[in-house]
Design a protein around this nucleic acid. Structure first.
Length: 271
DNA sequence: AATCCGCACAACCGCAGGAGT
DNA sequence: AACTCCTGCGGTTGTGCGGAT
């Protein structure tokens, strides 16, 4: 609840870590683990705040960190996961063994975002609209960058991250943007919301899944890995889609299928 | 050789949730 | 119930490096 007290900055070092500091931190954690980050620097004899130690360990010193540049497969996975999850870097990182949320965030902002923007502006993008049905459980939105976010039921922290989200639009549409390598599905509505249980993001995406689902639903393929897409009715234009909102809205079996098969979502490959 | 500029990445900051009291 | 403490997350900033001028 309460906010963490400001790190007492007096006497604490900031900035890049030295090799010696790294060694102290590594040896201390190897010996004692890190049951209490706040107390760790004091016990280890480091002039750093616990937060800094934790970050250094998690993002750089952890033995299972995979250093080096990202493979094409990893980059494709990040792009696709970002389409699905938005800026939930920690969730994305959980799907990429050896990579940290910070690293993925950096790669996204320096490489992938630009690549995506370039790609979308230079390629012939075909857009098709979809209708969206109202469902139960949790609301699902997409922000400006096509990322998935959840509005009213989100935590304040998550809501904060949606600050640049455009306000509600009148239409009730999903827009699918087909590019050469993957498909982006975009919601443009605040009134007709799709609902997905919160556990979907953390639990189901990390579980072991089979491949049955992809055989009976829309699928996008990235580097040989199939990803299920939301099975919604393809519409040729907005007017037509508006006329069909009613029928689609009543077709709850679509969402029933989604939630039924969530457990069968294919897991991402390990790199 | 010096300077500028952009990129990549490490690190920091502020906020919020959860556990404990 | 209210408060504090700790941890984790995501956005942002700082810094070093290499290439261009």
């Amino acid at each position: 609840m309460g906010r963490a007290p400001c790190c007492e900055k007096m006497g604490l070092k900031k900035g890049p870590w030295s090799h010696d500091e790294d060694q102290i931190l590594i040896s201390y954690i190897q010996l004692n683990g890190h049951p209490n980050w706040r107390a760790l620097p004091k016990h280890a004899g480091l002039l750093r705040c616990g937060k800094s130690c934790r970050l250094r360990w998690i993002n750089y010193l952890r033995p299972d960190i995979k250093r080096g540049s990202f493979s094409k497969e990893e980059e494709d996975s990040i792009i696709h996961l970002h389409e699905l999850l938005g800026n939930r870097w920690s969730v994305i990182a959980a799907k990429l063994p050896g990579r940290t949320d910070n690293e993925i965030k950096n790669v996204w902002h320096t490489h992938l975002k630009k690549r995506l923007e370039t790609h979308q502006t230079t390629s012939n993008v075909s857009k098709k609209r979809f209708t969206m049905s109202k469902c139960t459980t949790k609301a699902l939105h997409f922000d400006e960058s096509d990322s998935v976010v959840e509005p009213d039921h989100k935590t304040p922290n998550e809501k904060r991250n949606m600050s640049n989200q455009p306000s509600s639009s009148e239409s009730s549409t999903l827009t699918e943007v087909a590019t050469d390598s993957y498909v982006v599905t975009k919601v443009e509505d605040n009134e007709h919301e799709a609902f997905i249980d919160d556990s979907f993001w953390s639990d189901e995406l990390s579980g072991d899944q089979g491949d049955n689902f992809v055989k009976s639903n829309l699928v996008t393929k990235v580097s040989g890995v199939e990803f299920p897409m939301i099975p919604i009715t393809l519409m040729e234009d907005k007017d037509e889609s508006d006329q069909n909102i009613g029928s689609v809205t009543n077709d709850m079996s679509i969402w029933s299928d989604i939630f039924t098969h969530i457990e069968e979502l294919p897991d991402l490959p390990e790199f």
